[in-house]
Nucleic acid binder design. Structure first.
Lengths: 289, 289
DNA sequence: CGAATTGTGAAGATGCTGTGACAATTCTTG
DNA sequence: CAAGAATTGTCACAGCATCTTCACAATTCG
């Protein structure tokens, strides 16, 4: 049931969903105690953050590319309102959480009207600040939706998570869903050997029963399509008794010189113990390009 | 006849719903004094609103088509958390403002984590409640962003957000509201595959239940109209087990290349010196008014 | 050489999508 | 307000893409 869901959760380790991109947060405040606790918490969450102790011109904030800003208006003095207005005008997508001392209803209303997304009154618990920032950012994020994932490249193939497809020279391999998930998984682990059990559990979501050949069958299907589209390369390597390893290797020797496009050619992957050492020159392939 | 359709409608989730469509708010609370003051205020703002005094099943809220909901969790009793979670799951785009009596930090954090957008502690000033609801809603509908959008073009079709219509050679496709939202959404994601779940949640506003075929049906209706108006092109491509992808592809031979993915998409820039000689140079811009 | 592991092809089961008809809902009009 | 039209949502069924399973051949390892 709902295998589509599980599959998506489990099996998009590399690309699309994955861990949400790290957030960038700035805190504009002078309360060192507050800042310290908050910073530590932000660290633990893995959010990039930056502390600003003095009034930063609103324009300067623009260049910081923040997801959200926590600000104590007291730091800004009497020009706080103007500052807030300018900032909200300039960065309508920035999440702004005001976290400041005692205030009147009128002040809070004014701040929110000007564009603040939340208003917390000090003293407050850092955990709540975090939660409110998350809430603000969560909402902000929906529109942008898909994060732009750069395509994975290996040999002649290009793996595009946003299209659920792999391409060779611009032509789709016409992979089915499972096939694509498999190549994505393997390619993301470039160079490493993935055991059958692991592949199975990441793709199918549950543990493999002994004797299940599904992984092998899909490896074969993938190899077929890769072979047809990119005959001069080998991508999926069998490790007897263990599993499979993905690495683009040209059949034409000397191939390591020329790879279609600019990729960090990480495929020299360590061990290489098993491959034929013969190192003779031949026509290098520029294939397809 | 198609013009009169939908210029004004409350929920234009994907659309270019620029202006201030009347908001729909519900208040779930029993505090009559609070409700009265709030209601009066909402009236004056011209927001449609509705007061709920008893715990409404989360599912029932779905059908209310709300922009935001103000809720006192106390009304819900011990099942408040479960209720909140279900509601947030079903309506990721609904703005939820919790307005309730004294609470602990842990409770507030929990509520915000579950999906609430704000948490106000009673007693509180109605004006602040309003301001916070506005803040939440403001953020919610940012996606509409671009007010003046230039028409989207793809193959022979031209998609005009300002008219809620798509045209081929100046002739309107007579799309209904949903149909238009769908084509707009797909076309905006040009090239990328959109999963059913995503399409559904962006168009209908709540998460899809398994077995719902609405997306498929509207894709079919769209395809029919596109096919009739522009028979030599295919626009919507099915990705089995995943969703749909929008990309104009000509049926005429001429090797209309599948987007040459890897390259820095200078493709759409029109350099196309060598390909697709049969471009659509028609005057599909002089269309009707 | 024998046992275990992997490659291969095909048949059948599974579940997804296309499609048309129809019911429910919303909007328009008199 | 009610009738009528348009739009949207639901359902059942047919066709088919995909997935699973199985038998058997080929390979690897000890």
């Amino acid at each position: 049931m709902t295998e589509s869901i599980t599959a998506r959760d489990e099996a998009a380790p590399s690309g699309s969903g994955g861990a949400s991109a790290p957030l960038r947060i700035a805190v504009l405040d002078r309360d060192t105690g507050f800042i310290q606790v908050l910073s530590k918490r932000l660290d633990r969450l893995g959010w990039e953050h930056r502390v600003l102790a003095s009034p930063v011109p609103a324009d300067a904030v623009v260049s910081m590319r923040l997801s959200a800003l926590v600000v104590d208006l007291a730091v800004l003095g009497p020009q706080a309102w103007e500052w807030l207005e300018r900032l909200c005008g300039a960065l309508p997508d920035l999440g702004i959480v005001v976290c400041t001392g005692p205030s009147t209803v009128a002040q809070r209303v004014r701040g929110l009207r000007l564009g603040a997304d939340d208003w917390i009154t000090k003293p407050c618990h850092p955990e709540e600040v975090i939660a409110r920032v998350q809430s603000v950012v969560r909402r902000r994020r929906r529109p942008s939706g898909r994060t732009e994932t750069k395509p994975l490249m290996a040999g002649e193939v290009e793996i595009r998570s946003d299209r659920f497809q792999a391409f060779v020279a611009g032509a789709s391999l016409d992979l089915t869903r499972r096939e694509f998930e498999l190549i994505e998984l393997l390619a993301a682990a470039e160079g490493r050997v993935l055991e059958r059990e692991e592949i199975y559990s990441r793709l199918w979501g549950y543990t493999m029963v002994r004797g299940d050949r599904s992984v092998d069958v899909f490896v074969r299907k993938l190899r077929q399509k890769l072979e047809k589209a990119s005959p001069r390369w080998r991508y999926i390597h069998t490790h007897f008794g263990i599993g499979y390893r993905f690495a683009a290797e040209s059949l034409d020797v000397e191939a390591d010189v020329e790879v279609p496009s600019s990729l960090p050619a990480a495929w020299d992957a360590g061990d290489g113990s098993e491959l034929t050492g013969s190192h003779q020159d031949r026509e290098l392939t520029t294939d397809a390009f």
